[in-house]
């Protein structure tokens, strides 16, 4: 994100302010169409996300008590969003070590530390794991860049 937001200039403070989980997942998974200005894309994803968030909260507060259907389970939409982004990211790379480590380490930490306390140990262990796997992952990454460069030349 640091490099992605590097050239954003005046928009940067706002982009940092608006960098929620949801914005983050869209900005790092979103394939920005070629004709779209990347900075604008980041800005409007952040802005719309904030607007939806506020509008949703206000609407919920105003009419939440009037809803007469059972909303139990509607929070699954967040799970679904993260799953969709996970699938998108999975398809965008041939190396699934990092994705699998994220699921695996978090799952193990959940079993050991319980649902209220597993997040921080999981984040630490994921970082440690990725640090140890750096040589391997970077070699693969370099191979891929090489391939895409040669492909680019042949076109």
């Amino acid at each position: 994100m640091i490099d992605r937001y590097k050239e954003t200039g005046k928009k940067k403070p706002y982009l940092i302010f608006a960098l929620t989980d949801e914005t983050y997942s869209l900005v790092c998974s979103g394939d920005v169409p070629e004709r779209v200005d990347q900075k604008k894309y980041f800005f409007f994803v952040s802005l719309f996300n904030q607007c939806y968030w506020i509008a949703g909260s206000v609407l919920g507060a105003l009419i939440g008590s009037l809803l007469n259907f059972n909303t139990a389970g509607i929070d699954f939409s967040m799970t679904a969003l993260f799953l969709v982004v996970f699938v998108e990211q999975w398809k965008s790379t041939s190396n699934h070590l990092s994705a699998l480590a994220g699921i695996g380490i978090s799952g193990i930490c959940l079993l050991i530390f319980g649902s209220d306390r597993f997040l921080i140990p999981a984040m630490i262990l994921i970082t440690v794991f990725l640090t140890l796997a750096r040589r391997r992952l970077e070699m693969q990454h370099a191979d891929k860049t090489l391939v895409s460069e040669t492909e680019g030349e042949s076109k």
């Binding site: 989980d21 996970f86 990211q89 695996g104 380490i105 999981a122 970082t127 990725l130």
Partner: peptide, 11 residues
């Protein structure tokens, strides 16, 4: 990291 974090968020 994004790949691992998204997995973590699903969990």
């Amino acid at each position: 990291l994004p790949y691992a974090i998204m997995g973590m968020l699903v969990v």
